[in-house]
Design a protein around this nucleic acid. Structure first.
Lengths: 345, 345
DNA sequence: AAGCAAAATGAAAACGTTTGCAATTATATT
DNA sequence: AATATAATTGCAAACGTTTTCATTTTGCTT
């Protein structure tokens, strides 16, 4: 394939320099270290650049100084509510810091993540933000070898070797499970997503069950289910669960599943929360507005996005810190209409 | 600030060449035109690159050949369901074509869009995908000046000057409005988002009202409302509308608003669809699963994402086509439980 | 086996910036 | 006013590739 497109129209830094009557070096400094160029020249250059409609070529720059001004963001999925608010907040805050976001998703497929990391490294990202701690070692070492800053978001654990910003998913699951137990429920069903390559789900599931066990509950086979991140599939599963010998409450690994469960209950004509209590984790957009409102644990997605953007920029400028730092964000139980004290307790 | 981070560990193309016993030129060809390097050398280079953990630097390459392998995607918002499926499909298909997605959102603020375009141009994107046809002329001409391919997605119109892939929002609004009128409804309320800088919403709103007028209906002030893209705000607005002198049906400019309306009706204890019919546009994830299922017009978001990815890659390789091309994607009315023939008609 | 075309490779000049160093100019000090 | 110091600026050499052109090697044909 012939690549013949011309961009002849575009002016370069030397054109600007020529027109402003200075050297290209000075123009470069005007953009990168504005403080060290004198006011008169600054004005000259500003005018020349405007006249020519100059847009600088950061690729050429990064070739020299190793900084591309681009940050990679790798998420499991973009197409559902889970990460939407986070991505938006992250990208916006990066833009404010004059960085751009190179985004990619892998659908919980770690091998794909390796390819994605390679592809991002080929574009010389200054840093990368990943979700959670479950990652292919190959991907991590490629990043480490090239001194690319890494931040893991969403989950919080004290002992991990890469820096992170996130909530304790363990606590989140404890909160919602504990709340439901406190309401008197003893026959509780648990629906969680697949925990393979998903430390958030794993932490939540384990903590939820642990909390149940600690109260002396047992969780038989028909009270523990797996379910993908999909409202429709959750609805179908819940309909099955609810059709016979139903529990008094369902704890869901995330709000997506909880939405499906609530719809399932409604489709079967149940009264919520009288016939069934439902709890989620996440507090996505919409969870508070549905009827009944979903009782859930609020994870501050936007805050994580904001913090992650600031942190990755700082890290990429400063070089890797000696030790990984971990930032815990607050979560809170949001009581809404989908849970209720059990009647016959 | 001193930028002293070293990437000394990283090997370049000449290291690979040295180790493979060939010239850098051959290694470059190995990556860019694999067909013209002989099998033995190919193997040598493959091995050398693997041994050294070489990751090529595409920035350096684009400096020379004007292609960065990066496509810009500018959407109004990432943080709600509207564009989520589209973005996911788009980014995935770009990845398959060995391109990466530089994403940014502007929250329906055109002036921000200009800044974003500049920032993307500084990274020398090969093409850019925008939503709709309402754009700042400055942004468009910056792109045109630099021969960057542009595709507009989501909306379809025959007469626009930039290439597009999308559905007819006019048809969509006609479909849902017509459906509701066909069901016998005459007292219909319309809730649409702000149409400023939003041609999709404008087309929909106009077509919906037109359809109503064509049937001889009038739409008084209290039957036409504005509402942001937010379930919660839609819910509040709908509660107000429904509390006094309520219509028999509500046509919503998108599924987000429709979700809010349905929740509002439920919060007031209405029976859906007996007390009220609700129609949306979009068919987002979840619209089919809620109770009752939302009657809406399906816009194939994933398909648009897929087509747009393929199209922008092709355009960016081929140079601008002589004439803008417009691709119309199919939409369809999805009848679900939220609409019903009016009882007393 | 010679001759020729085709295929594969190498040498070196770009691509558009940034930056170390040196040279110049402005400012401060006496 | 002369000198010392600091603030600006310019020169030219990178940065890591890709590509043109020329050269070498390979494969065919007779």
């Amino acid at each position: 394939m012939k690549r013949t497109r011309s961009r002849k129209g575009a002016h370069g830094i030397v054109d600007v320099a020529l027109r402003a009557g200075v050297s290209p070096a000075t123009v470069s400094r005007f953009y990168n270290h504005p403080d060290i160029v004198s006011t008169p020249t600054r004005i000259q250059i500003e005018k020349a650049a405007a006249d020519l409609g100059y847009i600088r070529n950061r690729l050429a720059g990064s070739l020299h100084n190793l900084f591309s001004g681009t940050i990679g963001l790798i998420v499991p999925t973009i197409d559902n509510a889970i990460f939407a608010e986070f991505i938006e907040a992250f990208a916006s805050h990066l833009r404010i810091q004059d960085r751009t976001t190179l985004i990619a998703s892998h659908g919980y497929d770690l091998s794909l993540e390796v390819q994605i990391v390679r592809s991002l490294l080929e574009r010389r990202i200054d840093g990368v933000v990943l979700v959670g701690f479950d990652h292919d070692l190959v991907a991590l070492s490629m990043l480490a070898d090239r001194n690319v800053s890494i931040i893991s978001v969403w989950n919080y654990r004290e002992d991990e070797s890469i820096s992170s910003i996130g909530a304790s998913n363990t606590e989140a699951a404890k909160l919602i499970t504990g709340h439901i137990i406190d309401l008197g429920h003893r026959d509780i069903c648990f629906i969680f997503p697949d925990t393979k390559f998903n430390d958030r789900a794993r932490d939540r599931k384990q903590a939820a069950l642990q909390t149940a066990y600690a109260t002396g509950l047992t969780v038989p086979k028909n009270r523990l289910w797996n379910c993908p991140y999909d409202i429709g599939e959750a609805k179908i599963l819940a309909q099955k669960i609810l059709s016979k010998n139903r529990p008094t409450a369902i704890v869901c690994g995330n709000d997506i599943i909880a939405h499906g469960v609530i719809y399932a209950a409604q489709s079967l004509g149940f009264d919520l929360p009288d016939d069934l209590s439902v709890g989620g984790i996440g507090d996505f957009r919409g969870s508070g507005d549905m009827e009944p409102g979903l009782t859930t644990v609020r994870l501050p997605a936007r805050q994580i996005g904001h913090l992650a953007a600031d942190a990755i920029v700082e890290m990429s400028q400063a070089g890797l810190p000696p030790k990984p730092s971990h930032r815990l964000v607050e979560i809170s139980l949001i009581r809404r209409g989908s849970t209720k004290r059990i009647q016959n307790a």
